[in-house]
Design a protein around this nucleic acid. Sequence first.
DNA 1: GTGAAAGCGCTAACAC
DNA 2: GTGTTAGCGCTTTCAC
Lengths: 357, 357
Amino acid sequence: MTTMKEIAQRTGVSVSTVSLVLNGRDEGRVKSEVAAEVRRTAKELGYTSNPLARSLRTGKTRILGFVSEEVATTPYAGGIILGAQDAASRLGYMLLTVNTDGRANEDEEIATLKRYGVDGFMYAKMSNRYVDVPAVLDDYPLVLVDATDRAGRIPSIEPDEFRIAYDATMRLVDAGCERIAYVGCDEPMVAQEGRLAGYRSALEDAGRVFDEALVANVLNNGPALRAVDALFDRESPDGFFCFNDARAWYVYECAARRGLTVGRDVSVVGVDNHRIFAETLEPQLTTVELPHYEMGYWAACKLVSLIEDRDPSGFDVPDTTAPLPPYDGCNPAKVHCTLVEKASVRGSAQSDALSPA
Amino acid sequence: MTTMKEIAQRTGVSVSTVSLVLNGRDEGRVKSEVAAEVRRTAKELGYTSNPLARSLRTGKTRILGFVSEEVATTPYAGGIILGAQDAASRLGYMLLTVNTDGRANEDEEIATLKRYGVDGFMYAKMSNRYVDVPAVLDDYPLVLVDATDRAGRIPSIEPDEFRIAYDATMRLVDAGCERIAYVGCDEPMVAQEGRLAGYRSALEDAGRVFDEALVANVLNNGPALRAVDALFDRESPDGFFCFNDARAWYVYECAARRGLTVGRDVSVVGVDNHRIFAETLEPQLTTVELPHYEMGYWAACKLVSLIEDRDPSGFDVPDTTAPLPPYDGCNPAKVHCTLVEKASVRGSAQSDALSPA
DNA sequence: GTGAAAGCGCTAACAC
DNA sequence: GTGTTAGCGCTTTCAC
């Protein structure tokens, strides 16, 4: 690793001058020929700065701390972290991630991140819920990801749960479904509340009456499967909005057992959490893809804007090949969902699905 | 953040002495009363070392680089990274992870990690395949995770693919299945090769003949579903070993359409990649859980042993509440799979599944 | 046994 | 315009 010292020696100037030039602070301070020569030598020697040494001096590490739980148990995390990493990388930051097993080791992990000198924190949950932010984060720049501050003080990047369900339900209405069921999650959380409200609102805007009987909030495994089965028997729905792919799977199994084909006989719009829809059932349903990558990306942007105390919308994000969501400085923001229309819902019949036996 | 300097001042000794004591090198060099006083003061002031400053001096950062691709698209990654993080954390290291989009930005990301002074690298793939290790990693301690070095030079931690399939197939044999199908992946890779061989071997050891017609290597979506459907029609298998949950899903759907219940009429053993089995179908099948966490954990242990050039089995891993896989210093290692028996396979009938309509 | 001093690579006052 | 100097927090050699 070449150092500024070496460049200084080769160029015959002092280290300070090299530092000035290589940090772009030479304008009007260093003669341009000298500056050019320094830059040339730096390039020739393949100089890259030593972030540790710089940090020691400046007190800034350009490292962002990413604190989350459950990273091991959901694939959500990957997308969020990737987005955060990409944004960080483009803004010249690194991401240091830690996992916590609930509150137990959380403070400790955060303390470790502090020791490594992170400039700020992202605090992520893997499904939008109300959180009490740990006090140890109080005096650091902080952004919540897929979580909502109960106290309403901390900026957060979260999906627009209401709109997810509203749009999905409207899609089913537009497809001609008469009896639209909501297969939700039997746990109180922001996502569940918001989505149920969106479902209800869409129905009302479409001139339907909200019917409690069409709502099945289920947990998992056998009991969930039986609950969905009962819903089929009792209400004969022809459209389903599913909270996630696990719930959609129950609908699939129940439909299959009745000789009904999803995408032809019944319609399903589901939130794809495990990316398994895309891999297995793409042609048969409409998926709602949560913008995990974008949430991570925007969260990192927001955090950097807090750290550097500058206008977040003015980010000079370099172009790359991958298409990027424009960052609009939202704060606190609801990130819109993405409705990915994979195929027909009920009504159009070019389904790629297997016909009933 | 308190520094050694402050401790030195409060204690009336020099910084060097404090350093000696706080690094445990005081034995026979510093009077024990002084050492005790230093330690007391450090504790009182809540001293924690500044890793950056130390690194600047020692050239060691106690940071491990974790390079992987596809983190966003598979939930595998979470488990591996979590394991690696846990091990790193216990051994006093941090994990700096980067994602790559294929070879394109890989060298660049690795270069960034180098700039941050990582002591070594883990290079992970998200499904066991042969890899050519990037040359830029050549002069660093390196361990592959869920990947196999084509050149056979680099140690790796990978699942024992053969044994996964062997055990799973034997399980189906033991359950009384007569016609056991292999629903695999239509791509050449270590996992696929190893598993097909294990399947074949188990059949032969059970006195069966391997029958090509029972092997369906499929891709996904409609074509995969139709291929599995054809397999049902053509061969009427009563047992299935599935490469992953996506493949198992096709089996589920085909079975459901025929009024067959998995766990009663047909048996399925599948590798659970997306953790969706556990959430949805737990009672109906036997899942093979790949030891992602353990792979990450052991990989980090192995890497640290390379970095510190010490016997890997001698790790003094502190006890915690969570049960941990013992690290046995394997190198290069095959990590055994974990067969998690959730329920009956064919023959015993206490399935919690929904009965056919 | 303990302290003074040098230096890791870099930045930032302040001289000149 | 450029160099000198000091110092971020720590480790390590070498005097005393």
